[in-house]
Design a protein around this nucleic acid. Sequence first.
DNA 1: ATATCACATGTGACTAATCACAGGTGAAGG
DNA 2: CCTTCACCTGTGATTAGTCACATGTGATAT
Lengths: 165, 165
Amino acid sequence: MTLKFAILGLLAENPMSGFDLVGQFDVGMSVIWPAPQNEIYKILRALESEGAIRVADTGPRGRIVYAITPEGRTALTAWLREPTDYTMRYEPMLKAVFMRQATPATRRAIAKADGAFAAEQLAKLRQADAKRRAERKPDPRADARRLIILFYEAMEKWAKETAED
Amino acid sequence: MTLKFAILGLLAENPMSGFDLVGQFDVGMSVIWPAPQNEIYKILRALESEGAIRVADTGPRGRIVYAITPEGRTALTAWLREPTDYTMRYEPMLKAVFMRQATPATRRAIAKADGAFAAEQLAKLRQADAKRRAERKPDPRADARRLIILFYEAMEKWAKETAED
DNA sequence: ATATCACATGTGACTAATCACAGGTGAAGG
DNA sequence: CCTTCACCTGTGATTAGTCACATGTGATAT
């Protein structure tokens, strides 16, 4: 159900095909909310039959470009206003809960891997951020990027603390 | 599959019944990884048939207390050593991605709600932290609590920034 | 020409997760 | 005694998500 709105939200930014959406999730979206390729196509068909999106264009190789409809936009903003579900699913945090039960070597290995991942994501995000700023166009994702950067900074800090104990 | 290890990890800390596990998830675990009540019982049966846990005790009202077996402990540490899946599912972050598409009032409402939730969690966590420190017992969850505190601090900070724009 | 590759959507079988409800049991209080 | 409530496990139906594979097409280079 949440994935449906992830897709609807992306289509609200720009008309896109299923293939384009797969690319969006590959590029960075899946860090926040993953989407298997075939789920995307299923949801597109569902959203279309609900009238939230419509076929805006077709292209070579069976390409189907979808665009959000006014009803879809209404549904999206209604979802944004609904109470948020704050339950998270994040394996690194779960491993952190149990890591004291493992050997110090394993603990350090986990912390190191977490830190490396966070650093890698931060590098990407900061680069994207700099690029966007240089372009001086309004950036609809700026808020989210800021939140995600703060999040990975916290994770990196934690990893450093935890690796050296 | 990940939930299986969440349950195994909890049983590695203490022998518990399904009912106790439901309580654990209610109290705070579900913020990191949620578990519907009936999934817990299903997984307990599966873990038992795999030999990762065993019935350690029975009590009134059909209560069944499970304890982890040596094989279970092996499986748990093997999981900890396995490469971590860093994909997250977190609705607040997803909403952050699309919040620029909503009205300023909606954006502020989202940021405010997120900030309030983070503050509430921080209050709980800090209290638990202080209590644990006062007890001076070794705390297997200390690492995780630290990570989660850092995470909610980041979220609170972001919410403050975002609410006032 | 034709081989290769990126583009693009889809199906089928399966597993995990979710929702809503069912139903029995011991403890405690009036 | 008997009502009420917290305790405790469970079933059945449904939906969402995952894995692995299938299929066709246009562009590009040799």
